[in-house]
Design a protein around this nucleic acid. Structure first.
Lengths: 248, 248
DNA sequence: CCATGAATTTGATCTGGGTCAAGGATTGAA
DNA sequence: TTCAATCCTTGACCCAGATCAAATTCATGG
């Protein structure tokens, strides 16, 4: 199995797919040039662990493409996913030198990394970066709090429906699919990863997906491709009162 | 019952109890003066709801003294606490004009508020504020993720032990109590509020507290005063591998 | 000192989701 | 094409924690 490789085909920030959503979103061209000095790309294969909790981290970075997870593991092996990293999401924390969570590639993934020390120095000089990072962190905090409600108070069926709604929503935004008609998307996560996200067992995840299928809320093509004929019905199942706000 | 009152005894920032931990921690004296222009104090009684989710928010602010909670409520009444606000914690989000969560006073509470628009303007001019707010937000995100593990994977007993450990730890830090000997502190939350924090029912909270008492992990004086004879045993019960780091 | 009501404890019972176990489906390597 | 390794589904059973229902304790004001 291939390990990790430092890609040396340098992207030009100008046509970077996450240019306008990542931590560099607000940067002017001179600021981008400075970032360019300290950046490098790394790619990983699906299944690899990019970072182990407790590891020394000498970089921070952004997911350029692919999906990764942030997970916490207890001594006895129980694990809880605490974040799902999508393109443009930020990894690492300025001012901390060891990783707090395991980071694992769910799909093949490319990251745009910055050496930590120079990045921290630059953050002080460049308010645009700190501003954008604050905004992104506040968004993540909101997402984490939303997830606390799911974990603490929702039933297994509601949890699954909530996760499907989130993935469907994200997919609709990324792929700019037509608003009308059934949504179709692929589940990026295994049943086990979904279980770790939702605080369930993989058996319960499987059963609830089957139940939603039997009730006509979703249909499946293979194990991973999901069709949602009526998004509002899915939201009802998720007991989600913020009715699809994002989808507009 | 008294409603809310705008306290007109102006604190001097110089002897503010949260001067060095709040969003203003890094500010120089000239920056404090600017903040002083847009600040005002508000106080609330225990039990009052300071802010309702969805309300228009024309201010942000810091808890000066007392304790408040951030909670989310579903249409059918299920509620989940998503944050516990202690002195120096920040309320509100720059760049958002309505509240995302209910904020309730658990004890009598005093807040130092800033009018939102001027505060936002000042944030742009004053990197010290944005820097500190970023740091605080990253800490909150870590706390939220820690809590996701508690909600998703811990048993009822472990949840209670985790909460007690957090409160004990905070209390030890605030009151600078002696490191050795049994810890003693008051529970600021009702059984119901603890249940909302932990994703449990109040009956289960009560039962697990009784169980910890019977097992000698804690002892109670009245309903609220807790003694922890051996903090490490409590941490074991919490299945907490980050063994007491903060307590040093 | 008593009445009232909130907060808490405790008991009895029920159930959603966990656990254990057995097969299927899909993939890729040999 | 067969084998092995994952990943997923489904069934049977069980238990931690929810639910329903009383007590009991505690604080407060009259």
């Amino acid at each position: 199995m291939l390990k990790e490789s430092t890609v040396d085909i340098p992207h030009d920030c100008g046509d970077c797919p996450i240019r306008h959503r990542a931590v560099c979103a607000r940067c002017e061209s001179d600021e981008l040039e400075q970032l360019d000095q300290i950046k490098y790309y790394r790619s990983f294969e699906a299944g690899q662990t990019l970072i182990w909790a407790g590891d020394k981290m000498d970089f921070v970075g952004s997911v350029v493409s692919g999906i990764a997870t942030l997970t916490q593991t207890m001594e006895d092996g129980r694990t809880q996913m605490v974040g799902l990293l999508l393109p443009s999401d930020f990894v690492g924390r300025p001012g901390r030198d060891s990783a707090a969570y395991d980071v694992q590639a769910v799909t093949d993934i490319v990251m745009c990394c910055f050496r930590k020390k120079p990045f921290e120095d630059m953050m002080i000089r460049t308010p645009h970066i700190a501003q954008r990072l604050l905004e992104m962190t506040l968004d993540e905090l909101d997402a984490a709090r939303e997830w606390m409600l799911v974990l603490g108070r929702k039933t297994a069926r509601e949890k699954i429906a909530s996760l499907l709604a989130i993935i469907a929503r994200r997919d609709a935004v990324l792929n700019m699919t037509k608003k009308r008609g059934p949504l179709v998307f692929d589940l990026p996560l295994t049943r086990e990863a979904m279980a770790d996200y939702l605080g369930l067992t993989l058996e319960t995840v499987s059963r609830q997906i089957s139940a939603l299928k039997n009730d006509g809320i979703i249909s499946l093509e293979g194990k991973r491709r999901v069709t949602v004929p009526d998004f509002n019905r899915l939201l009802e199942e998720a007991a989600d009162d913020s009715d699809g706000g994002m989808l507009v």
